[in-house]
C-alpha cells in the first residue's frame, strides 16, 4: 500500500520536503506508520510524536494526525492507534499537523 505522508507546521522543520511516500504492507495500522517514521527519522521524530512518561505511551499534545476526515491526538493512547489504514485502498494520505484547535 502506498502511503503519502504530509507534514505541516513545525514538522516541516524536521522533514524538509513536507511530504514523503512510503510503501507499507497491508493491513497497516497508524501505529505501524508511526513506528516506521520513528525508524526512518530517528529519535528526533520520536520525541516530536510520542510521550512515554505518562504511564502509557501516547501522542504528544503537539501532534494531530488526520486520515480521511478522522483524526487522532494526545487523547488517544498508542493502543488506540491500531486502526487499520485504508483497508481497501491502494493509496492513502496521512496528515501530521500541530493541534491548532481540537475537538473529536
Amino acid at each position: 500500500m502506498e502511503v503519502k505522508v504530509r507534514f505541516y507546521g513545525q514538522f516541516r522543520l524536521l522533514v524538509e520536503s513536507g511530504k514523503i511516500t512510503l510503501h507499507i504492507d497491508p493491513p497497516a495500522t497508524l501505529l505501524d506508520l508511526i513506528n516506521h517514521l520513528c525508524q526512518q527519522y530517528g529519535d528526533k521524530m520520536k520525541r516530536m510524536l510520542i510521550r512515554e512518561d505518562t504511564g502509557k505511551p501516547r501522542l504528544k499534545p503537539e501532534v494531530h494526525i488526520a486520515v480521511k476526515g478522522k483524526s487522532w491526538d494526545f487523547t488517544s493512547d498508542l493502543v488506540a492507534l491500531n486502526e487499520v489504514l485504508g483497508e481497501n485502498d491502494r493509496e492513502i494520505e496521512v496528515f501530521f499537523i500541530p493541534p491548532l484547535q481540537g475537538g473529536k
Binding site: R51, T54, R58, P61, F74, P98, L100
Partner: peptide, 9 residues
C-alpha cells in the same frame, strides 16, 4: 493549541 494539563510540555 494544546490545552493546559499535566501533559503540557
Amino acid at each position: 493549541g494544546p490545552p493546559p494539563s499535566a501533559l503540557s510540555e
